[in-house]
Design a protein around this nucleic acid. Structure first.
Lengths: 144, 144
DNA sequence: TAAAATTAAATTGTATACAATTTAATTTTA
DNA sequence: TAAAATTAAATTGTATACAATTTAATTTTA
């Protein structure tokens, strides 16, 4: 096998699929005025209410260089608040505003719309998700 | 299942894995002074010698907004030439320079280095690649 | 065949990503 | 406990991505 052929690359399909999936999210997320990375931040906040920038970064594998401007954007949309922690002034805590919490109701339709847009069955998506998650966990470990 | 949990998202693991894999490529590709998207362009050119911007875009699922600056960068590194086609002046043909062709020899070590960096077996990588490629083909179709 | 439509790149503007550095705060250690 | 090391965000700079628009060339159609 010639590993310098695009056809045989393992990384390219992942890279391309990531962009294809994000493109499928785009028109759906426009309905709630979020980009895909912004949606991911909202997802983890809907789950946890309050998280530091670092904790969000750990969950999404993003650093402050990416998150700081993104969080400022969510703040300007009045979906979150950013406050320095009193216990540790280095830490910036992110909280949902009432509007941010309320957005969850609208967002509930997103996964179903996404599924329809993609045209994959639930079973296929779950299979994809689980196989990728195994690889992701493995490669995250190695990276440390 | 609550599809608004990060844990249950299908797209996030793909998005995260794509970035993890690209991060693994980074130190390896620095040895030949290429970014990952630049490496992909070189891969398709090593396979095809000459392609239009549009053809490269079709293979990599990238548009001219992404490719034009990237190709200008590869041109400034003297790896490729960009020339308007004589038959159709709208088309810009991309050719490898001697240096671009020669780089392939150095790049031959990249896939093996990548495999080692990742710590996955060939079998695991092939399985990942093939399962993702199936999904990618399906979702590309739907998008049209 | 001339106007309309289409096509290929390039450009413009916005939004990530991320390495490297900086800043300020906190923790560790000699 | 004061200096050194570490940590969390923010900042700076570079490199994608991609939608929307523009420009120039080509093709289609009335």
């Amino acid at each position: 096998m010639d590993f310098l052929k695009l056809e045989d690359q393992a990384c390219f399909p992942v890279y391309a699929l990531s962009r294809v999936l994000t493109a499928h999210y785009k028109p759906i997320l426009e309905g709630i005025d979020l980009t895909y990375p912004q949606y991911l931040v909202m997802l983890v906040l809907w789950e946890h209410q309050q998280l530091s920038v670092k904790e969000i970064g750990e969950k999404l594998l993003l650093d402050s260089g990416t998150l700081t401007p993104l969080l400022k954007k969510l703040e300007s949309k009045k979906l979150i608040n950013r406050n320095r922690s009193n216990e540790d002034e280095r830490v910036v805590m992110i909280n949902l505003t009432a509007g941010g919490t309320a957005l969850r109701e609208k967002a509930k339709a997103v996964p179903e719309s996404f599924k329809c847009s993609l045209g994959l069955s639930i079973e296929e998506m779950v299979a994809l998700r689980d196989s990728i998650k195994i690889i992701l966990e493995r490669t995250k470990q190695i990276n440390k």
